[in-house]
């Protein structure tokens, strides 16, 4: 049900601009909406991050994933159990660039007949989410072509690598296919794996459908309708340079559908779980070093009024008995 509603919502986001542009509202979808979306995204994203960053981290609670730094002759895991900023940096690099925690999903398998223990792993989630995220990044970089003048060399390199297989005309980008694979796998898990389906909510389906919609409209534009790229760039550059105007050449309605879906993503982003992009950098169990036994970690709301039951009160309670048992006391009876 949740999946169905999400699907309908995304479908609406495609149909509305398509029809709207036909009715002559292209400026609304081509100019006004992108500005609104970008403003909401930037303000919303910043506010969320600031809101998190402002809340205190009272305790140093990293989840340690390896041997602590201890005696010099004991082999230490500096990336899984960092003690300083440098170690945390490496841990986060591995986490953010390689999804290390998901990769950890290893398991030992026992071969049926035989004494050997083999190792295998449950890494499909890791693999497909990695594929999805990297393709998404690559596609974003490629799209910089529409927003920058002159086009930076890095964009060219990305395009070259992405189309290295030289299939079709216009040349097919591998990332377009791979991101579909990644997204479809992530969606299939939610639909077919009962365990994951049980925990899935509407806000889990919606971004998946939204991204699928973006990819599909993008593919449609590039490979099927083969839209007028010059006109599109005229529009996007006019937006970026803050001199918005509609291009003279007509643009296919699918561009507006694509653009609207992207805007929807931008608007939705700060209010959703997609904020994990920023949240990971503020997750205390990952970004804190395991240093609280080496140095002082300060809790801003530490309440000095909370005091232990004092020794004096304790001795007052038990003085007779302590003396009788031969235990030293501070005050004689």
């Amino acid at each position: 049900m949740a999946a169905f509603y999400s699907f309908l919502a995304v479908l609406a986001l495609i149909v509305i601009p398509w029809l709207g542009v036909g009715m002559g509202m292209s400026a609304l979808f081509g100019i006004a909406l992108p500005y609104i979306a970008i403003i909401i995204f930037m303000v919303g994203f910043t506010m969320r991050i600031v809101d998190w960053a402002k809340s205190p981290v009272p305790f140093c609670i990293p989840t340690t994933g390896g041997q602590q730094k201890s005696l010099p002759w004991i082999k230490w895991s500096p990336w899984d159990n960092p003690v300083d900023k440098k170690g945390v940096f490496m841990r986060m690099v591995l986490e953010v660039l390689c999804f290390r925690s998901l990769f950890r999903n290893t398991s030992v398998k026992l071969q049926q007949d035989g004494p050997k223990v083999g190792y295998s792993s449950e890494k499909s989630l890791w693999l497909f989410s990695l594929i999805f995220h990297y393709c998404f990044l690559l596609i974003l970089v490629r799209h910089l072509r529409f927003f920058l003048m002159p086009i930076p060399g890095a964009v060219g390199i990305a395009e070259f690598l992405d189309s290295i297989l030289q299939i079709g005309l216009p040349v097919m980008y591998q990332s377009d296919a791979l991101i579909m694979v990644g997204l479809l796998f992530l969606l299939a898990r939610r639909v077919f794996d009962g365990k994951v389906r049980y925990i899935t909510l509407m806000q889990d389906y919606f971004p998946l459908f939204l991204l699928l919609g973006i990819v599909l409209t993008g593919v449609w534009m590039r490979y099927v309708v083969k839209v007028d790229v010059i006109a599109v760039k005229e529009l996007t550059m006019s937006i970026v340079t803050l001199r918005p105007h509609m291009p003279t050449a007509p643009i296919d309605p699918s561009v507006y559908a694509h653009l609207t879906l992207v805007c929807a993503l931008f608007i939705y982003f700060p209010f959703s779980k997609l904020m994990h992009m920023g949240g990971i950098f503020l997750s205390p169990t990952r970004v804190l070093p395991n240093m609280s036994r080496r140095a002082q970690w300060v809790n801003p709301w530490n309440d000095p009024a909370v005091k232990a039951h004092s020794y004096e009160a304790y001795e007052d309670d038990f003085r007779e008995k302590m003396i009788e048992a031969g235990l030293p006391v501070d005050k004689k009876a």
Binding site: D193, K195, V196, I199, L201
Partner: peptide, 8 residues
């Protein structure tokens, strides 16, 4: 806020 319910 940030759980994506990936099921890991």
């Amino acid at each position: 806020d940030i759980c994506v319910r990936c099921g890991a």
